[in-house]
Design a protein around this nucleic acid. Sequence first.
RNA 1: GCCUCUGUAGCUCAGCUGGUAGAGCAACUGACUUGUAAUCAGUAGGUCGUUGGUUCGAUUCCGACCGGGGGCUCCA
Length: 647
Amino acid sequence: MELINITLPDGNVKQYPKGTTGLEIAQSISEGLMRNVLAAKINGEIWDATRPIFADSHLQLLTWKDTEGKATFWHSSAHLLAEAIEALYPKTKFGIGPAIEQGFYYDIELPDGKMLSQEQFEEIEKKMLELARQKNTYQRTEVSKADAIQYFTEKGDEYKLELIEGLTDGQITFYQQGNFTDLCRGPHIPNTGFIKAVKLMNVAGAYWRGDVTRKQLTRIYAVSFPQEKELKEYLTLLEEAKKRDHRKLGKELELFTFSENVGMGLPLWLPKGTLLRERLENFLRKAQVKAGYSPVVTPHIGSKKLYEISGHWEKYGKDSFQPIYTPEEGEQFLLKPMNCPHHCEIFASKPRSYKDLPLRLAEFGTVYRYEQSGELHGLTRVRGFTQDDAHIFCRTDQVKDEFGKVIDLVLYVFRSLGFSEYTAQVSIRDKSDLGKYLGDPADWEMAEKGIEEVALEKGLNIVIEEGEAAFYGPKLDFMVKDALGRKWQLGTVQVDYQLPKRFKLEYIGADNQKHCPVMIHRAPFGSLERFIAVLTEHCAGDFPLWLAPEQIAVLPISEKYHEYAHQVLTALEESDIRGYLDERDEKIQRKIRDAEVKKIPYMIIVGEKEQAEGRISIRKHHEGDKGSTTLEDFIGQFKTEIAHVKQ
RNA sequence: GCCUCUGUAGCUCAGCUGGUAGAGCAACUGACUUGUAAUCAGUAGGUCGUUGGUUCGAUUCCGACCGGGGGCUCCA
């Protein structure tokens, strides 16, 4: 019998008969491994674990722990979903059914224009599990294009036929499990029995091939797991996320609201939310002054001309809020969608020398952008928002250094706010299509290299994304991971060679010649709205002490101690500690409960004892009674607790 | 914009198959004067998102519009 060499991930080489499968190799290692193998990675390519191997190969067995193993599992689950739907609703047509980040979906079209609703979920889930228990194998067959076309013509599935049209004859495969056959590249898990838990999440409309001009299919989102327990954990996580939803907490904690009369996507900041916002602003303002930024203020509207110069009108104009006109002359103005053109004009307001650079202009600039109604979402997608914007005008040779300084600032912001896990995504040019980028290739080269170098120097965990750069320059985006492990894109830093040219910006260099500066756009928060949304969900509404809109609640035991309570509150306010006094005729238990629900970090309880001894009793949110202390000591501790943040 | 779900008092929600609405909390009034997560009683509060239609009659059925949620990039 002929043997082949299989190299395992640890470097060991073992010999197996030609035609052996990943599954058989797993079995030779251990029975337990065999039960967990979902797919096999052969020389970097993912295969069915049941597909025979005929040549010497590097092999990695994929399980649920591997991202690719999960993806295979979910993709196979999508087939199971389709099988169940076909069994329940014959003549259903199928689009595509891929695995996604968390689960999978299948785009389908039910016969006779019928729609699917949540009511049918249970029935489908039941069917899926029933089919899963049959432990049907996923059978791979290679088919000719003609046979593939014949099969789906007979089945009457024009979506699959369209997909086949785009494929090359000789590279087409079908997979069959039970009575369901699907056009599929694979790979798949060994059999449906691996799927122990399924849950349909929701249905949504999705255009065929993402094209708005084409038919909208029904997309069914679902997740599946190899163990019932994992589904439960996943659902618990979703519940936790729901509890932390910034829209829910924003309402409960009275941070912001929306009004139909004001307009959708236009947040109204309530007093407590405004306090939070202002603290964030002041915090960054202070850090920016220290980092050499100059605050500026520009109007909320700008002449349409300004945006014609910047190019934004041409690029975004038709999808934007439309111009407003002056009554007499009919001049056109736009609600500003960007602060950069205004800042460019500030740069241009007087002659600049190379010695003036870098010039860093910062503004908490509120901008307005038209988002499609369906895109709006709480504070994360809105039509009016405030960017913690700044533009750094510098020389080409200063780009790297300035980039480094911006990274320092962003990291300082993240650390101060309790985001400890973050990565940086560096977006550079698509090397195969350099023509579409504006600016001197040599400058690009220098900037791309500089960004990567400086990001690594700063110890950032970076991911390079080729082809993701904007046409006007490379960029770096910060992704943070929140307390539930969800990823959010926050701060961004972008190099721009384009805008300074369009505005004909110039400075006099050491050579007494005119030069065009480079511009760096940057926003550590991104937008205050989005940032506060992410922060709220990250800390579940328990804001860091220095940010909490109300830091303390003074709770007198009864009316008799109101005067003493007033004295305490006044003393705290004089030390810049913000809080409120609960003077209601309620029992102390009630006052405490209400303060806990409002997530007030500290409660100060004063009654007979405290008044007599000139002390206060402390209770901490989530932690309970902390005993009594003097006012001075408490203020001292309080200050120490927030000292790490320069406010 | 499109698909889908959804819209009842300030908030959270109940209201079976059509007969013009109910609870808890909040608010207000009063009593209680309180020791570490909800004191008791009373009062008030809604043209059931808007607007057409079906019907003797609609919060309940149908349509349109408005708002909210989920989704519309993940390529067999």
